[in-house]
């Protein structure tokens, strides 16, 4: 079931089109990666889902109804441009932001105390935000985003500004939220994290959607019959090739030879049996393209 449907949304500013007839479906409970180069229109789309701006044409459906005023309470948004009131105390501020999302101060405080414990920042409750380190401010902002336990979470570059340890902490929390049933839209340039946590992605380029689908399915779609084979050292791998196979690159670390090959469909068995006649195979696997490669390829092809 789709929690969010973006139906043919178009938005133009003064003299440039930010989104051009964009169509997206986000399934309930998945982590949806919204990808695209800078200025592609991701932020515009996110702002529309948050009802900060409205589409010129098309519509956005949340839980199968048009976005309305009360929907802001079931969405949590972590903008790319982070920011809190500098002069306000951390705890007080988080409660205020939660109240604006419709939470009662009492419930907000109770949940907040738990989160502060979890993130190990409990003794910063009464500190002004400007006294906190950037990482801590980020943690607080993350907490304020999820505190009202929204059905739909939108994270715009959530990992920027975090050290590796906190990135792990955050990833765990995001996966926890997913496990609890939240749907997460995840906008980023960091393709490694996309592979790690996204179920589905959509790639937007120059205001148009150019690619979407489940991550696994897309990888299958983009695979180009590449395989990696590892054999003991001393075998000239080129000499073991059969028709329809080609070595793209190889590397030798003194013990093993690792090579990347392209193998035409249906030639796997012939190649492997040919190799096995001469030597052992330490490992053999299909190489799927990384999201990074797919990203770059799609954008390049589009241009």
């Amino acid at each position: 079931m789709d929690i969010l449907k973006v139906c043919s949304v178009t938005k133009a500013y003064n003299n440039h089109v930010a989104l051009d007839n964009v169509l997206l479906n986000v399934k309930k409970g998945e982590i949806f990666g919204l990808l695209g180069p800078n200025g592609a229109g991701k932020t515009t789309l996110i702002r529309m889902i948050n009802q900060i701006t409205a589409p010129d044409s098309g519509e956005i459906l949340l839980n199968n109804h048009r976005l309305n005023k009360t929907d802001t309470d079931i969405i949590g948004y972590l903008p790319e441009e982070r920011g809190l009131y500098r002069k306000m105390k951390a705890g007080e501020q988080a409660i205020y932001l939660a109240e604006l999302k419709g939470l009662s101060p009492r419930v907000a405080e109770k949940r907040l105390r738990q989160w502060f414990e979890k993130f190990d920042i409990a003794n910063w409750w009464d500190r002004k935000v400007e006294e906190l380190s950037k990482g801590m401010q980020q943690k607080i902002q993350f907490i304020t985003t999820v505190l009202h336990e929204p059905q739909l979470l939108i994270f715009d570059e959530p990992f920027s500004g975090f050290d590796p340890i906190n990135v792990e902490l955050l990833k765990t929390e995001i996966l926890n939220l997913k496990a609890k049933g939240a749907t997460i839209i995840f906008s980023t340039h960091n393709m490694a994290s996309v592979e790690e946590i996204c179920d589905t992605i959509a790639l937007i380029n120059k205001s148009k959607k150019v690619l979407d689908g489940a991550v696994k399915e897309i990888k299958q779609r983009f695979k180009n019959n590449e395989y990696e084979i590892v054999v003991p050292v001393g075998n000239n791998i080129e000499s073991l090739m059969v028709d329809g196979c080609e070595v793209i690159s190889k590397e030798d670390n003194g013990e093993m030879e690792t090579a990347v090959l392209t193998i035409e469909r249906g030639r796997n068995a012939a190649l492997l049996s040919n190799i096995l006649l001469k030597t052992d195979i330490i490992s053999y696997k299909e190489v799927l393209p990384s999201m990074n490669d797919i990203f770059i390829k799609t954008i390049r092809d589009y241009e």
Binding site: Q51, Y77, E81, L97, L100
Partner: peptide, 14 residues
């Protein structure tokens, strides 16, 4: 101040 500290984006999403 709200604009410069960027807190405004969170506020207008609520």
């Amino acid at each position: 101040e709200e604009k410069m500290s960027r807190v405004v984006e969170v506020l207008v999403s609520s």
